[in-house]
Amino acid sequence: MQIFVKTLTGKTITSEVEPSDTIENVKAKIQDKEGIPPDQQRLIFAGKQLEDGRTLSDYNIQKESTLHLVLR
């Protein structure tokens, strides 16, 4: 499924993921596309910071959901 990751600069990254993918996994995909190390990434969805060990389905993230990427 496709999800969108919006950066603070307003850029939107499209990523191909599975509901069973972990947040860590998603951060790795963002690193592949943007070159941002996962340890600098914080992903936010519905006002919550997403934890690395959890999966997209844990957070009820569905296709075409938009996550927000904040850098630390």
Rank of each mutant, 00 (worst) to 15 (best):
D39K: 10
I30F: 03
Q40S: 09
V17L: 05
E18R: 14
Q41R: 02
P38M: 15
D32L: 14
S65G: 05
K48M: 13
Y59G: 00
N25V: 13
E51H: 08
V26G: 00
T12S: 06
I13E: 02
P19C: 06
T55I: 07
I3S: 01
K33W: 08
Q2D: 06
L56N: 03
T12I: 15
T14P: 06
Q31D: 05
Q40I: 12
M1Q: 03
G35V: 03
D39Q: 11
L50A: 00
E51M: 11
K48A: 09
H68C: 10
E24A: 15
T9F: 13
L71R: 08
Q40G: 05
I61T: 00
E18G: 08
L50F: 01
D32N: 11
K6V: 15
V17F: 12
V17G: 03
I13S: 02
S20Q: 10
I3H: 02
N60Y: 06
S57M: 11
V17D: 01
V17H: 12
T55W: 03
Y59I: 02
K27Y: 06
K48T: 12
K11L: 09
L71G: 07
G35F: 04
L8M: 13
Y59L: 05
L56T: 02
N60W: 04
R42T: 15
D21R: 00
P19V: 07
F45C: 02
Q62L: 10
D21W: 13
D21C: 05
L50R: 00
Q2P: 06
Q31E: 11
T9K: 11
I30R: 00
S20A: 08
F4P: 01
I13A: 02
I61G: 01
L50Q: 01
L50K: 00
K27D: 01
M1R: 02
Q62W: 07
A28G: 10
V26E: 01
Y59F: 03
F4S: 05
L8T: 13
G53N: 12
S65L: 04
L50G: 00
P19F: 07
N60C: 06
E34M: 15
G35I: 02
E18N: 13
L71F: 10
L56V: 08
G47I: 02
K63Y: 07
K63P: 15
L56C: 01
G35D: 06
A46G: 12
V5N: 01
L71A: 07
K29M: 13
I61Q: 01
P38L: 15
A28S: 11
T12F: 09
G35K: 07
V17T: 03
T55A: 05
N60I: 03
L71D: 06
P38A: 15
P19S: 09
D39I: 09
D52F: 03
K11N: 07
K6Y: 08
L50V: 04
G53F: 11
S15Y: 15
S20V: 05
I44R: 05
E18T: 13
D39A: 11
L71Q: 07
V5L: 08
E24S: 12
T12R: 07
L43G: 00
I36Q: 03
D39H: 12
E16S: 10
L56R: 00
E64H: 14
S57W: 09
K48L: 12
Q41Y: 15
T9Y: 13
T9I: 07
L67T: 00
D39T: 10
D32V: 12
A46P: 00
L50N: 01
F4G: 02
L8R: 12
P37V: 06
I3L: 06
R54P: 04
M1L: 06
N25M: 15
S57F: 09
F45I: 03
T9A: 12
Q2R: 14
G10N: 05
S65T: 07
V70G: 06
I44V: 10
N25K: 14
E18Y: 15
K11G: 06
F4W: 08
L8F: 13
L43D: 01
P38G: 09
R72C: 11
T55S: 10
L56K: 00
N25G: 09
V26F: 05
T14G: 04
Y59S: 02
V5G: 00
P38C: 10
E24G: 12
Y59N: 01
I3D: 01
P19G: 07
D39L: 08
P38Y: 13
L56H: 01
R42H: 13
E51I: 08
G47K: 04
I36K: 03
L67M: 05
L69M: 09
S65F: 09
K11Q: 09
R54G: 06
L8G: 11
G10V: 01
E18F: 14
S65A: 13
A46L: 12
S15W: 14
K33P: 04
T9R: 11
Q49Y: 14
Q49V: 15
Q31G: 11
G47Y: 05
G35A: 05
L50P: 00
K63F: 08
I3A: 00
H68I: 15
L43H: 00
L56E: 00
D52V: 05
M1E: 03
I30Q: 00
T14H: 06
A28H: 12
L50D: 00
I3E: 02
K11R: 12
D21G: 03
I44G: 02
K48Q: 14
E51D: 09
Q2L: 15
K63G: 13
K11E: 08
G53V: 07
L8N: 12
E24I: 10
E51T: 06
K11F: 10
K11C: 07
S57L: 10
I13K: 02
L43E: 02
I61K: 00
I61H: 00
L67V: 08
G10M: 04
I13R: 00
L71T: 10
T55F: 06
Y59R: 01
P19E: 08
N25D: 12
P37D: 08
T12W: 10
K27C: 02
P19I: 08
I13V: 06
L67P: 01
I36C: 04
I23V: 10
Q40L: 12
T12Y: 10
T9V: 08
N25E: 12
K27R: 05
E16V: 12
E51A: 08
S20M: 10
Q41D: 02
E34T: 15
Q31M: 14
P38W: 14
R72M: 14
G47F: 05
Y59M: 03
E34A: 14
